[in-house]
């Protein structure tokens, strides 16, 4: 088990390093960073002077050495858009807000989808099942921004129960978290449902019933543990998907000052250094989630090979 964990973490580190190399190459080798630093109408002399000042005239390999050294010191460079602020500082301030949103949204999604999918699976084709499936299909087929706008118009503008936008207390979190959760609830419910139906039709469930195991235990212990692998796969995918960009839409709709919103801003302001830090941090997050999911697989299902 521990060798498995160490191996997975090692593999994750390799991916992170690869991501760092790609980011470096994209920002230094395939583009000229000075293009971003100086206004378009800058003269050739100004460009060269600036290039020398920033060290971009040196061989690429030397630059890479510096880059790695900086990173290892935790120096991710300075923002162009907000001169004087380090990019990691901006990320450090916005990331927790995004994590908060993703955590709230995904917890909500999983907390809703598990019981919904399990209830639907109790009697496939029954009234309750049909209602839940229809609801899920509606949820999963609505684009995220649309869900966001809908919630905003109904609960914030019309009913005025909740704030329209911005970052604040718990009440500010509700609508964006819901907007992030609802399409995910749809997808997750469908997967929980179909995985549970498969498991409930399996022979070992029949045997468990013949042993006299109560239905509740069969549901929550036997079938659910087996359905878990599929549920975990999709949950992991939902979380990485949210982290790797899909929260942007929700952050934009609700003006939630998170990581995604700043990524958009960095693109608009041509802040290539902020953007590379954001990409790198997002890569680390995605890798971390995947490593955790892989370890959880192993915990719930002994059949998964230790590789």
């Amino acid at each position: 088990m521990w060798t498995f964990v160490i191996r997975r973490v090692g593999q994750g580190l390799i991916v992170v390093v690869a991501a760092a190399v790609v980011v470096f190459l994209l920002t230094r080798a395939f583009t000229d960073p000075v293009d971003f630093v100086l206004p378009l109408e800058a003269t050739e002399e100004q460009r060269e002077a600036r290039e020398a000042e920033l060290g971009f005239d040196r061989p690429i390999i030397v630059q890479f050495g510096d880059y790695v050294e900086d990173l290892s010191r935790g120096d991710f460079g300075e923002s162009l858009w907000q001169p004087g602020r380090s990019t990691i500082d901006i990320v450090g301030q916005t990331l927790p807000k995004t994590l908060q949103l993703v955590a709230a949204g995904m917890t909500l999604a999983i907390a809703l989808a598990l019981p919904m999918g399990m209830i639907a699976a109790r009697r496939p084709g029954g009234v309750l099942d049909r209602i839940l499936v229809t609801t899920s299909l509606i949820g999963l087929s609505m684009p995220q921004f649309f869900v966001g706008l809908l919630l905003l118009i109904v609960f914030a503008v019309q009913l005025q129960w909740l704030p329209v936008s911005g970052y604040g207390g718990f009440s500010h979190l509700i609508l964006p978290a819901l907007a992030l959760a609802l399409p995910a609830v749809g997808r997750l419910t469908m997967v929980v449902r179909s995985a549970m139906i498969d498991e409930l039709n399996s022979q070992y469930v029949r045997v468990s019933k013949a042993k006299g195991t109560p239905t509740r235990v069969i549901f929550t212990k036997h079938a659910f543990r087996n359905a878990g692998v599929q549920v975990l796969t999709l949950s992991g995918w939902e979380i990485t998907r949210a982290l790797a960009g899909f929260t942007v839409v929700v952050e934009k709709v609700f003006a939630w000052p998170g990581f995604g919103l700043f990524a958009l801003e960095a693109i608009q302001r041509r802040d290539i250094f902020l953007l590379s830090t954001i990409v790198l941090v997002a890569a680390i997050l995605v890798v971390t989630v995947n490593v955790i999911i892989d370890i959880l697989y192993k915990v719930i299902d002994p059949r998964i090979e230790l590789t």
Binding site: S202, Q203, Y204, N226, I300, P302
Partner: peptide, 11 residues
């Protein structure tokens, strides 16, 4: 039952 291969819960 008939099928011992699938009659036990694998996990």
């Amino acid at each position: 039952f008939q099928d011992p291969m699938t009659s036990l819960n694998p996990v």
